[in-house]
């Protein structure tokens, strides 16, 4: 079974997120969050599916999710 990863999908804005969510789900992409205010959908899928959903009209970008940390490497912060 191919490894599933977390992805962040940015909508182009010319199609509703609800429509996109439907298309994504049909393609085998598991939607976690629909962020209506910023036109972004997050979720999980393997690489093959992520590559495939890039071609769905209304999707501007498919990027892997990334780790985020606190800006300052401050020894006094822990």
């Amino acid at each position: 079974m191919p490894e599933k990863k977390h992805w962040i999908i940015t909508a182009s804005g010319d199609r509703s997120l609800r429509d996109l969510k439907k298309k994504l789900t049909e393609s085998g992409f598991t939607v976690d969050q629909e962020l209506e205010e910023i036109g972004i959908i997050t979720g999980t899928a393997d690489d093959r599916i992520a590559e495939k959903v890039r071609l769905i009209p209304g999707i501007a970008d498919v990027s892997p999710d990334i780790p985020v940390e606190i800006g300052p490497p401050d020894a006094a912060t822990w």
Binding site: I8, I40, V68, E69, I70, G71, P72, W78
Partner: peptide, 30 residues
């Protein structure tokens, strides 16, 4: 522990917009 992922940050931004904020402060990054 001071760590997270991008999708959590985006969820926070979405929440702040939905709540009518004028300013978001984000002391984090990758």
């Amino acid at each position: 522990s001071g760590s997270s992922v991008g999708s959590s940050v985006l969820a926070g931004i979405n929440w702040a917009i939905a709540n009518g904020c004028q300013v978001i402060s984000m002391s984090l990054g990758t």
